[in-house]
Computed example of a mutant assay.
Amino acid sequence: MRLSVAARIRNNFLTGLIICAPIAITLWLTWSVVHWADSWVQPYIPTRYDPESYLDFAVPGTGLLIAMIFITIIGFLGKNLIGQSIVNFGESLVRRVPLVRTIYKSLKQIFETVLKEKSNSFKQVGLIEYPSPGLWSLVFVATDAKGEIASKFDAMGKDMVCVFLPPTPVPTAGFLIFVPREKIVILDMSPEDGARLLISGGLVTPEYPVAVPSQDVSAPAGRKRLSGAQKADRLIAPE
């Protein structure tokens, strides 16, 4: 069937929107971050070191560049003995302030867990039955239950995993849920693909290659097979 002129114009407009919208949004977000960093850093730059004092036009990104250099230098100094002593002294001062020490300790633990090179946190995407049996939700696997929570679960004979259940379309908020290890179905998609799936409301689905059928093999030692009738159930190895 031949399309009418109006239908062709509509299709061309939607195609152009699909091409231009991601580019425009990416440029806008990048520009906003650059201006936000400049507004925080540039007021503290001495006039003789500010390029805009010698030029007749603004130089966006100067504050962001200086902030990145400053953070890199702090990280370099923090690795040697003198830098660690200064950091420890600063942390000792922060720990004496009642409210500030709680916020600082929580934020430090979060950044150390997320940015640690050997951390496996949020590197796996899975499915759990939530909010009721038969309904499945996408989650990001954080880590095994640790500390007091782990001891309580061990006393009950349960092997629990901490997962993060983000909402759609804003994955920055969500629920922290402890789920039995055998109740999680691990997916092959990357965390980036999982985030895109959530943000798009299920419209952007990552491609999945067709797997070659193979014989069912028993789980290796030290691993547990997930319960369920599906043969595609993944294995989760405890840390």
Rank of each mutant, 00 (worst) to 15 (best):
T47K: 15
K116Q: 10
L14Y: 09
I25Y: 07
S92C: 06
L64A: 14
Y44Q: 07
P60R: 14
A24R: 06
V94S: 03
W36R: 05
R8T: 10
C20F: 04
F111L: 12
R96L: 15
T102Q: 06
F13W: 11
V87M: 12
G61Y: 04
G83R: 02
G90E: 13
T113N: 07
L115R: 04
L81G: 13
K118W: 04
K108P: 04
I74M: 14
L65T: 04
S39C: 02
T72M: 07
S32Y: 10
R96G: 07
F13M: 11
T102H: 03
T47M: 12
W40G: 09
Q42F: 06
K108N: 11
R48C: 11
I66A: 04
T72F: 08
Q109A: 04
A24Q: 10
F89E: 14
H35M: 14
I45Y: 02
L64D: 01
F70D: 09
I86A: 10
W28L: 13
Q109Y: 03
G63A: 08
H35D: 08
F13V: 15
F111K: 01
P46Y: 07
V100C: 07
F76G: 09
P43R: 00
W36F: 14
G61L: 09
E91P: 01
T62Q: 11
R10M: 14
Q84K: 12
R48Y: 14
P46G: 05
I45M: 06
I18H: 05
I19T: 08
A67Y: 02
E112W: 03
R8E: 06
K79A: 13
S85D: 08
L14E: 12
I73C: 03
L17H: 11
I110V: 15
R95G: 07
S32A: 15
I103L: 11
F57P: 00
G16F: 03
Y49N: 11
Q42D: 09
T47Y: 10
I66G: 01
L93F: 09
I69P: 10
V34R: 00
T26C: 06
W36N: 04
T26L: 10
L81E: 11
L17T: 15
L107V: 10
A37Q: 10
D56L: 15
Q109K: 00
F76D: 01
L64Q: 08
L107A: 07
N80R: 09
E112C: 01
I103R: 00
V114P: 05
Y54E: 04
D50N: 12
V59T: 08
V41S: 00
W40H: 13
